[in-house]
């Protein structure tokens, strides 16, 4: 019986030097499930993008829907503007307007707080206008939103008061 000698296993470094050990990765085909998930996600995004944006307040979601309805592109809180800095140069106060409308180069900030509680927001806005005078920004107060969204049949508050005389509107 003769022994057949096996060829020695070559060292990796030797193969690398010869150029034989190339990383051969076969073309990655996404698993069909993954493709399907991506497809569904895309479809879902097209059918309802609001599921993918985390709005801070339902009124903002309504506002976004009104904009989309009128085919106006919007971005939700895309930019942050530093307003104040600590002595070491780090940012102490920022302001991120709720919406940016690229078509009009306009920022919109919505507030549902009562008029007497919006002092801080007004101060922030004043500071923003001082530091960045080139920025167009509109602040929508609670009463503006109520009136604006009422035009579209949306109540800012959930309660609807029956008008005097009992006329159901």
């Amino acid at each position: 019986m003769t022994l057949t000698l096996l060829t020695p296993i070559p060292e990796q470094t030797a193969l690398l030097a010869e150029g034989k050990l190339t990383a051969r990765i076969t073309k990655f085909r996404p698993i069909s499930g993954l493709t399907r998930t991506r497809g569904l996600r895309k479809k879902k995004w097209r059918s309802n993008p609001y599921q993918f944006v985390r709005f801070a307040h339902p009124v903002e979601a309504e506002f976004a829907k009104v904009l989309t309805y009128y085919r106006v592109r919007w971005l939700y809180e895309p930019h942050q503007f530093p307003l104040d800095w600590h002595p070491d140069g780090t940012v102490a106060r920022m302001f991120a307007p709720d919406f940016y409308l690229p078509e009009f180069d306009l920022y919109a900030e919505l507030t549902t707080q009562k008029q007497n509680l919006v002092t801080r927001k007004n101060a922030k806005l004043r500071r923003l206008r001082e530091l960045y005078p080139e920025i167009n920004i509109r602040l929508f107060y609670r009463k503006d939103l109520q009136r604006l969204l009422a035009r579209f049949g949306i109540a800012v508050s959930s309660q609807i008061v029956t008008p005097p005389g009992g006329l159901a509107l």
Binding site: S47, N48, Y50, Q51, K65, Y69, Y70
Partner: peptide, 9 residues
């Protein structure tokens, strides 16, 4: 609002 599909004008 986030559950409603958006319409367009």
């Amino acid at each position: 609002p986030e559950r409603r599909p958006p319409g367009v004008v």
